[in-house]
Amino acid sequence: MNIWERMLNIDRRWIFLSIGVVSIIPFLTKIGLPVSTTEEVEDIFTYIDSLGKENAIFISFDFDPGTQAENMPMGVAVMRHAFHNHVPVFLTAYTPLGHGMAGGALDYVTRPSTPGYYTSVDFDEWADIRNAGITDRDELEAAWEEAGNVLPDDSHGWVFEGRDFVYLGYAPLFHLVILGMTSSIETQYPSDAHDNPLSEMPILREHKSLREVDLAVTTSGSSACTAWVIYGREKIGLPVAFGVTAVSATDYYPYIQSGQIIGQMGGLRGAAEYEVLLQQNGITETTDKAFTGMDVQSADHLLIIFFIIMGNIAYFMGGFHRKKQLKGGR
């Protein structure tokens, strides 16, 4: 067995070890390589940036925990952007596990230990103000602070459940739920994930169906995102944006060119681009997990390309391209 054959038959555990080491080191060193932004992500950012308190968006967590490393930062970044501009947000999920993902994202954005968090006010907590007939976003915040509530110094602002966001979560046969929401959101979700009645929520009174919603951002690890195009975009013209995993991003470029979606965040890179745009526009002070993860991805991609090159060198130098079959490695 010559050196090339030995190289091609290398124990795969060495390859696994090298990937493991290369993945861990950038997390510890935090290099912070710059991420440039692309038109596909900028279009989503610009669109959401043009919205205000009179508009509303859906952020749908259409993924399972398997792809949360890629999809979760997308949902978190868009939610932060919407909260900053006081754009009301509906949080939904295509799958039962996505329900937990949506709750996790909301929890992360409103948790005091998260840098640049938003202070969440539960639906019951501001019942008195609501019952007094104050539901306008600015008036509500003023009344809440007049009642003696003080925003913590490190918080980015208040978010009122039922006014700034509603956590709807998962409902069975979600493609039919999208269809149903084109007529009425409340018929599909009589109450939210915290058992608050939707009929009493100001967000629902102003946005009764998907026809009164300005955008649906679907963060998806499968083809579930296309349900929003098929049942939302094509039926009532709902603007849709995708946040998809890197492996499936290539599948959805036709939707961008045809104008069926306004933009796409592809993989961790797409999420990192959105975080960069948030930071560049003063919406957040720092970037977040996706940006940090890009260093790891850079190192891993370089290593995989190195493996491809070394594999080919060994293959051709060893003359294996003239032979029919190689011995299998471990």
Binding site: P65, T67, I308, Y315
Partner: peptide, 27 residues
């Protein structure tokens, strides 16, 4: 549930690296 699924998906990186070395040839 979350760590199990995340682990299953992240293992792909290891298998992709191994496959890239063994199978991605300019034949």
């Amino acid at each position: 549930q979350v760590p199990i699924q995340a682990t299953m998906f992240s293992m792909l990186a290891f298998y992709i690296a191994s496959a890239a070395f063994r199978a991605f040839r300019a034949k």
